[in-house]
Amino acid sequence: MSPRLVPAQRDATGRRDRPLRVTVDGVPADGIAGQTLAGLMLASGRTSWRRAPSGAPRGLFCGIGVCFDCLVTVNGEPDVRACRRRAVDGDEVTTHSRAGHGDADGPGRTAREER
């Protein structure tokens, strides 16, 4: 385990947490109001939530909406940058994978079969 939220009682900002709960692929994850989905997922113990075309796991990278590596589906809206979207109680987050239907094998792959 590594990423985590500073416990409120030790936080110099003196914040007052309002807990909320979202689900990530159906699994509940707890956080507090104001967190981004990326912050919430990190602090609840996930370091990756997306798979690149090769299937390799990806997590937070730029944290400010530039790299699009943290994309998730939120309540059916695809391609939401988790680092920019504030969590709302009850959000249903679905993780993404580009593996299996992209050009995963790179330029060596043969043409798609005729349908």
Binding site: P107, R109, A111, E114, R115
Partner: peptide, 13 residues
């Protein structure tokens, strides 16, 4: 060979 792969020929219809 590389270029022909990058041409992504796809007789999809």
């Amino acid at each position: 060979h590389r270029a022909a792969q990058a041409a992504e020929w796809d007789p999809k219809g």
